[in-house]
Simulated scan of single mutants.
Amino acid sequence: MCYYVDVKTTPSEVKKIFNVGINHADQFKTGEFISGFTHPNLPVITNLQPDLIQTDFTWGLQPSWGKGKDLELRKGKLNARLEEIDQKVSYKNITSNRCLILSTSYWEWRWLDEKGKQKEKYTIFSQNDEIFGFAGMYDSWLNPVNGEIMRTFTMVTTAANELMRYIHNHKKRMPIIINRADQQSWLDPKIDIQEFAYPNYNQSLVAFVAA
């Protein structure tokens, strides 16, 4: 799973690397150890606007059919298991709503005992890309009280590769990091989302024990 990320870059650097524009650059969220449980806005690129970085999407999916804002529901939808997407009511109708969640690294813990009372913290990077995109899906919810539209996303996870099985040894999961050459493929809703499941799809990662 993945609940903590870093965005240690600038709007100008991201625009240059991804060759896209950006809306509301002054709202571009940066920081270290950003917690999904605070429902932050993170920079994303969606399949509907692949030439634009958007800064008003919030982490933690609020389904369009929801009757009201539900923070407890959204805490359980920071991540979506790729294997269950077609069965879950919150996800099965948005498999065409795909996005890249931009980041520079993320955090995970290795359990050092059976119950996880002792843990070792790791920060994980893409071995190929200084700035990368997590695979994500998004939805829009219309607030019936004030008519405002809230855009939210969830991060898609898969079975852990060898490195992440060692680190995330209690659940053996990992977020899907889209290789730069495959980003347009992820954003193409005609491509089966299950093609990005491990081990058919894999990434080169590097990890360091946090000080």
Rank of each mutant, 00 (worst) to 15 (best):
S140Q: 12
I176L: 08
A207V: 12
D182S: 08
N200L: 09
P199H: 00
A159I: 12
D129I: 01
L187A: 08
F196K: 04
E148K: 02
T152L: 05
V145P: 13
R165F: 05
D139V: 09
Q183W: 08
S185W: 04
F134M: 00
K172M: 15
D192S: 14
N169V: 13
R173T: 14
G136A: 10
E148L: 06
Q183N: 03
S140W: 13
F153G: 04
Q184V: 00
N200E: 10
A181Y: 06
I191S: 02
A181M: 02
N146F: 05
E130F: 14
V206Y: 10
R165I: 06
M150K: 06
N202E: 12
M155Y: 09
V145R: 09
H170C: 03
R165A: 13
I191T: 02
R151F: 04
G133K: 01
A160C: 05
Y166E: 15
A207L: 08
A160L: 06
Y201R: 00
V156M: 03
D192P: 10
M137Q: 06
A135T: 02
T158E: 05
Y138I: 09
M164I: 11
W141K: 03
L205T: 10
R165K: 14
P144A: 01
M137L: 15
R173C: 13
A207Q: 03
E148G: 01
T152Q: 07
D139T: 11
D139A: 08
M137F: 04
E162H: 07
D182L: 05
G147H: 10
A159L: 12
S204P: 06
I177V: 15
T157L: 04
A181E: 13
T154I: 06
S185C: 07
W141S: 03
M150L: 14
N169K: 10
L163R: 02
V145F: 04
R165Y: 04
P189I: 09
R173G: 03
N202L: 10
I177F: 09
V156Y: 07
E162W: 06
L205P: 12
M137W: 08
I167S: 04
K190Q: 07
Q184R: 06
L163M: 14
D192A: 15
Y166A: 11
R165V: 11
Q183E: 15
S185R: 09
I176F: 08
Y138N: 05
I149R: 13
S140R: 07
T154G: 05
A181R: 04
R180P: 00
E148W: 03
A197W: 11
S185K: 13
Y201E: 01
N179P: 12
Y201Q: 03
D129C: 06
K190Y: 10
N179F: 08
Q184I: 02
I191E: 00
I149T: 15
T152K: 07
G136K: 09
M164C: 12
E195W: 12
Y138T: 07
N146Q: 07
A160N: 01
R151N: 15
E195V: 03
N143A: 03
T154R: 05
I176Q: 03
M137H: 09
G136L: 07
I177K: 05
I167Y: 06
A181S: 12
A135I: 01
M137I: 14
A207C: 10
K190T: 15
M155G: 11
R165L: 14
T158N: 10
R173Q: 15
T157Q: 01
L142S: 06
K172Q: 14
V206L: 13
M155T: 15
N179L: 06
K172C: 13
